[in-house]
Write a protein that binds this DNA or RNA. Structure first.
Lengths: 117, 117
DNA sequence: TTGCGTTATGTTTTGCTGGGAATAACAAAT
DNA sequence: ATTTGTTATTCCCAGCAAAACATAACGCAA
């Protein structure tokens, strides 16, 4: 009956929240990874085609909600400064990534069971 | 280290898509359920605090993308008409709900494993 | 033949999110 | 002192998505 729609895929989005407020999701995850890779919020936001302002807001909103510091910033200096991640941020990244990949794998398996021919 | 943030919950959103276009998600699911319950798009949209316009567009966009008819509508008559679901719609609802509940349960279990104390 | 409640659809208005420009502070190197 | 590239923050504007408004058609009942 549904064989005309069997090129569908299942998609999953996962986030952590507290009182309906997003604490940690895909957006911050990507941002933190880019900061880790580039060493600066500025370059990270460019990579993600996001304005610096938005990137900055995103991070600090999450920091406020978590009551945790996620980034260590330094202004001035030879290369203008930069930003690196705290241990807490790295830990969150690890756990979130694991959660995300396991749930996604499970969803794909179930999807095939339920919608596959 | 993350014990200050242990009132968090994990949230999951699941949808079916084809070429980055949403085919079937939470929105249409709720709408179809409300139509099933009320027998009319009009009353369903009121229940969901959504404009009739938007409800109607949502349904027909999905119908177009699936190439399937989801609702049977009737205009005029004693009570003005009404709308009921097709067999395809009911089948989609069943499978989607099952997928959604199983994945959500799995996500909650994994979340406790990864973020619980 | 008028009224009613529904489907169906076009047009206008509103509100909000995100982007961009602008500006300041900072500290190392030269 | 000047240059440099970053963080930090304010303000205004555009674009888009949702809401609101408007209108037509339909068919049964009275």
């Amino acid at each position: 009956m549904l064989n005309q729609v069997n090129t569908m895929k299942v998609r999953v989005k996962i986030w952590l929240d507290e009182d309906e407020r997003i604490i940690f999701g895909e957006g911050v995850r990507n941002l933190l990874l880019a900061i880790q890779r580039t060493g600066s919020i500025n370059r990270a936001s460019e990579e993600l085609n996001m304005s610096y302002r938005r990137a900055w807001e995103k991070i600090h909103r999450v920091e406020k909600r978590m009551g945790q510091t996620l980034v260590i910033t330094q202004t001035g200096g030879a290369h203008g400064g930069g930003t690196s991640l705290t241990e807490v941020a790295r830990e969150m990244l690890n756990r979130y990534d694991q959660l995300e990949s396991e749930v996604t794998a499970f969803a794909n398996k179930k999807f095939v069971e339920l919608f596959g021919e």
